[in-house]
């Protein structure tokens, strides 16, 4: 509660929170909010590429579908991808970071070197390759993104564990005979949680961008999915006439990622007041 109040005191972070909450509401109630919910699948070729008007505020696409409706309907997909990828990446990265941070010696070295190697591969190439090899589609794109994002969690948790391991309360817990597994799960993990949450929030923004890029390059979402990246890709053949076709889905990506990044920054300030001073 204190954290929330502190977060809301920063207008920029509050704006981020508002955007994310707005996106959540839109995602949950999409079928009721969209003016033409059936446009997720139905096409009306007769009204194709209409410019924005009162009837179609964002215009229509090449198949005559209302772009506003499709942007609204695409929100759910974007958030589902972001949450599941980040969750899966955390499930791989957090345990690795905990173990590598706690143990000394070869196991720790090995885990962190593997993490470094993963970090050295350009994510987009790795994700592209994995999703193509596993048969392109949204599901495999998500697996591929999770497999490329876990090292960021491993690094974050590793640093936190290293920091906490030498703290007095951990020494005390070890001295009263608490097994390492319990110290890690019941004491170190909760203390590392703020850093993990910040990483997850920023990771969601990053995932939405990368997933959209995969969709744009043709290895993510497939038609007629109202995916934002896919919409931008489809719009390329209709430029420069139909500027609205590429503009609005891209704006939706920008807004949601912006919200997540602002929220992530705000959360970081709350979690680590030391950084607050320099940020002003």
């Amino acid at each position: 509660m204190i954290a929330l109040r502190r977060l809301l005191r920063d207008p920029v972070a509050a704006l981020g929170l508002a955007i994310v909450l707005f996106a959540l509401v839109v995602a949950v109630f999409a079928p009721w909010l969209a003016p033409y919910p059936e446009d997720a699948f139905e096409s009306h070729i007769i009204q194709r590429l209409r410019p924005p008007s009162a009837e179609f505020p964002f215009g229509t696409d090449a198949l005559g579908r209302d772009i506003l409706s499709r942007v609204i309907l695409g929100t759910r997909g974007a958030l589902v991808v972001a949450v599941s990828v980040v969750l899966a990446a955390a499930l791989i990265g957090v345990p690795i970071g905990l173990v590598a941070g706690w143990r000394e010696g070869w196991l720790s070295d090995l885990l962190m070197r593997v993490t470094d190697v993963f970090l050295a591969v350009p994510q987009l190439i790795l994700a592209l390759a994995l999703s193509q090899l596993m048969r392109p589609g949204l599901g495999t794109a998500m697996v591929a993104l999770a497999l490329t994002y876990w090292p960021f969690f491993a690094r974050t948790v590793y640093a936190e564990t290293r920091r906490l391991r030498v703290s007095l309360f951990v020494d005390a817990l070890a001295a009263i005979g608490m097994p390492p597994r319990r110290i890690l799960l019941a004491h170190i993990l909760p203390n590392a949680a703020p850093a993990i949450i910040v990483r997850a929030t920023i990771g969601m923004g990053f995932t939405i961008l990368t997933a959209a890029t995969l969709g744009f390059l043709g290895v993510g979402a497939a038609p007629p999915d109202p995916d934002w990246g896919l919409a931008v890709a489809e719009s390329r053949q209709h430029l420069p006439e139909a500027w609205w076709f590429s503009t609005f889905p891209g704006l939706a990506i920008l807004l949601l990622v912006l919200g997540l990044n602002l929220l992530g920054d705000g959360l970081r300030d709350v979690a680590d007041p030391r950084l607050r001073r320099s940020r002003g």
């Binding site: 890029t213 744009f216 719009s235 430029l239 503009t247 990506i253 920008l254």
Partner: peptide, 11 residues
């Protein structure tokens, strides 16, 4: 940091 580069390129 929030803008999708493929979208920016197209714009």
């Amino acid at each position: 940091l929030a803008v999708a580069s493929f979208w920016l390129a197209i714009l």
